[in-house]
């Protein structure tokens, strides 16, 4: 293969050069013609919540569909457990996976404090995925 040439250029090299010149192979070379939001520098700082700015108005975009509406298994009011859908999303907000998990309803989480030392073993609740 390496001995085959076109105009004194090895075929392997010619193919690679052609592919590289005609087709983008890096994310940075792709055109974002749909205006997808990317996880760029607009992601909020994680330092503190003190960097503030005033909102001047809504985007005018109505809320789209979102996940929490369906698949709620009714349990005991105020306590007990419910099965709720959980989602994973990408930076375009697309749902990449969904699954149901049980959410154990209790009072505020302080009972489960120090959970690094009790979680998964705690007899008071079941937090296993």
């Amino acid at each position: 293969m390496s001995k085959l040439t076109i105009n004194s250029t090895a075929i392997e090299t010619a193919v690679q050069q052609t592919a590289q010149s005609k087709f983008p192979t890096k994310m940075s070379q792709l055109t974002n013609d749909s205006g997808y939001v990317t996880a760029s520098g607009s992601v909020d700082s994680v330092s503190t919540a003190t960097n503030t700015s005033r909102i001047t108005g809504g985007s005018g975009v109505s809320a789209g569909t979102y996940g929490a509406g369906g698949n709620v298994t009714v349990g005991n009011k105020g306590s007990g457990s419910i099965s709720i859908p959980y989602f994973t999303v990408n930076a375009q907000g697309r749902v990449t996976a969904s699954y149901n998990r049980t959410l154990y309803i209790n009072t505020h989480c302080n009972d489960c404090s120090h959970c690094s030392y009790t979680c998964s073993y705690c007899s008071n609740c079941d937090c296993q995925p």
Binding site: S34, Y36, V37, G58, S59, V61, A63, T65, A91, G93
Partner: peptide
């Protein structure tokens, strides 16, 4: 962002 659309 929900389903590629921005929301506030």
């Amino acid at each position: 962002v929900v389903d590629e659309k921005p929301h506030q």
